[in-house]
Design a protein around this nucleic acid. Structure first.
Length: 284
DNA sequence: AACTACTCCTGGAGGC
DNA sequence: TGCCTCCAGGAGTAGT
């Protein structure tokens, strides 16, 4: 999916154009997209806000909350009546400027100004929940999500507490949404590279200085992705001539910091990219 | 507690 | 061009 920066970028775009709009039509093309609730409840509802928690997108209306998880390959696009793009984010396939609906478009919401919101997912993993607002909150609470890394409350101390006592390696620990919310495979690799930490280091063994480095790196990588708009154009692999991602998807290419070839390994079942020189495996 | 394997799907890339 | 294999920005479940 769409990790935190992609969902946040999407949230901002949708909030700008969706709040105050009334949903007039609902077209569901893939019934299993709906994990709970009835989309018909949204017909006639007015959007009151668009929020994000971890990788979840919440579209609040005066009738119910539409909770969306894009998983690995979900994409949401908001198009004006004339087809012009108002907001788009998530997985870059189909291309953000491709004609819609795509054959993998599973949901279309028609708004009162003629614009349409398309949810497309080539892998059919994305899910939505239509819930009373309180139930949406309860559902999120039940997930036990960890702290939001871009929240001011996310301090080095909070990160230290999230990692304390964990014997698993950093990579799977940081992917665990109950430790830190919103990180995914790309941004974990980028943050660890930036912090010069090997993904195999035991999470609970980091000293204060390393925790502070990791904290700063997580914030910097996410903040950069959101503010520089890289989250909107990122296509899962490094484009030639660009500086992001620094290591993810760049096996064999020179580390931007030291020139050593980037190495790919499998850690916790996930493709993991590191600079073996910048991220030494020695511990303590 | 934590590890692995497996599941839900399709598309794109790379090898031949 | 086509066929084949592998991999993929997530996360839940089951078995060890």
């Amino acid at each position: 999916m769409p990790e935190l920066p992609e969902v946040e970028t999407l949230r901002r775009g949708l909030a700008e154009h969706l709040v105050g709009r009334r949903i007039v039509t609902v077209e569901l093309r893939l019934p299993k997209l709906v994990a709970e609730g009835r989309l018909e409840e949204l017909e006639g509802a007015t959007v009151t806000g668009v929020r994000r928690r971890a990788k979840h997108l919440l579209i609040d209306t005066d009738r119910a909350t539409l909770l969306v998880h894009l998983k690995l390959a979900g994409q949401i696009a908001l198009r004006r009546a004339d087809g012009a793009s108002l907001a788009v984010g998530g997985h870059p396939v189909p291309r953000f400027d491709a004609p819609l609906p795509h054959r993998s478009t599973h949901l279309i919401l028609g708004l009162d100004d003629g614009s349409r919101l398309y949810l497309t997912d080539i892998r059919h993993f994305a899910r939505v929940w239509v819930l009373p607002a309180a139930d949406a909150e309860a559902r999120l609470a039940a997930l036990g999500l960890g702290p939001e890394p871009l929240d001011p409350a996310f301090t080095p101390r909070v990160l230290a507490e999230a990692l304390a006592g964990r014997r698993r390696p950093l990579k799977p620990t940081l992917l665990d949404q109950t430790r830190v919310a919103g990180l995914g495979n790309i941004y974990v690799d980028e943050a660890l590279w930036r912090a010069r930490l090997a993904p195999t280091l035991s999470a609970g063994d980091l000293d204060t200085e390393r925790v502070e480095r990791l904290h700063a790196a997580i914030r910097a990588v996410l903040h950069h992705a959101v503010t520089e708009g890289v989250a909107q154009v990122l296509d899962g692999r490094a484009a030639p001539g660009t500086s992001f991602p620094a290591v993810h998807g760049r096996e064999g290419q020179p580390c931007p910091r030291c020139g050593e070839p980037v190495r790919k390994a499998r850690i916790g079942g996930r493709g993991t990219y590191t600079c073996p020189s910048c991220q030494p495996v020695e511990h303590t």
